[in-house]
């Protein structure tokens, strides 16, 4: 019986490895193909090459798109994290009428398909006269990323001892000062990790960016346009670069978020 149990356990663990293999296969394959000389990669692989990287480095359109992407994701991360913080603090501190409606406003965007958001925003921006600008992408991406920012900061505030803020008031701090001196320092790891995550989401988003960007293309939009044309291994090179950026941001965010060791060492 126990022998059979052990066998089941190992079979299941092997299955988990297979599932992870499936999930990470495209990422690994893309990186391998980016260094592979074949235009249509297959097994056995061709020879090692960096020509795809050279090609994208010499492409001014890619540089332009990279600049736009960085501007968009940085602005988005600051805006979304600011709004996310205000929302998380409101949820943490206050009870009021229509609070559920308020929270729904923050958390609903991810449940609406991106293509629908894209169409709605395209039409709306055309209507209010700010279509086709970098700002339109930033505005749209902020809506999409607020829920992530809010959730991360809210989870962090959950771990805070409620009496800390009250103690600051009793010591004569105004409410504003208490936020500045107690809440923000405590939430700081979550704030930074929220900035990383929201930047990562914005950096990879293509549907909404494709619809509203006009001539200001971001990297994913350029990828989308190349892919629609034909097989071009340059995509793997750009893709590997994009993976590197977003995975660094995500891993950084998670490491920051998981450091809970210093929970109680908030200095007043």
């Amino acid at each position: 019986m126990s022998g059979r149990d052990a066998l089941t356990t190992w079979v299941l663990r092997f299955y988990v490895v297979l599932v992870f293999g499936f999930i990470f296969m495209p990422i690994v394959a893309s990186v391998i193909f980016s260094f592979n000389s074949q235009r249509f990669p297959t097994v056995p692989l061709g020879s090692f090459t960096t020509e795809w990287y050279t090609a994208i480095l010499n492409d001014p359109d890619i540089w332009e798109a990279a600049r736009t992407s960085i501007l968009v994701s940085l602005s988005t991360s600051v805006l979304a994290t600011f709004i996310g913080f205000c929302t998380a603090y409101t949820d943490y501190r206050f009870k009021f009428r229509y609070k559920y409606g308020f929270l729904a406003l923050a958390l609903l965007p991810p449940t609406i398909p991106l293509i629908i958001m894209a169409l709605a925003m395209l039409a709306w921006f055309a209507k209010i006269g700010i279509s086709g600008q970098v700002w339109s992408i930033i505005a749209a991406h902020t809506v999409l990323t607020i829920p992530f920012a809010m959730a991360i900061i809210r989870l962090r505030l959950n771990e805070m001892d409620e009496s800390l803020e009250a103690a600051a008031w009793n010591l004569g701090a105004s409410e504003w000062r208490a936020v500045k001196e107690v809440i923000i320092p405590f939430a700081k790891p979550a704030i930074i990790s929220s900035m990383c995550l929201t930047a990562a989401v914005s950096f990879d988003e293509f549907a909404v960016a494709w619809f509203v960007s006009g001539l200001n293309k971001t990297i994913p939009v350029v990828i989308l346009e190349i892919v629609t044309g034909n097989i071009d291994p340059q995509v793997n090179a750009i893709g590997s670069f994009v993976f590197l950026v977003s995975m660094t941001l995500v891993v950084l965010a998670q490491i920051l978020f998981m450091t809970k060791g210093k929970r109680r060492t908030v200095t007043p």
Binding site: S30, L224, N236
Partner: peptide, 10 residues
């Protein structure tokens, strides 16, 4: 949080 588009191309 990584590019879905590139994974599909892969």
């Amino acid at each position: 949080f990584t590019s879905y588009l590139v994974r599909i191309f892969s």
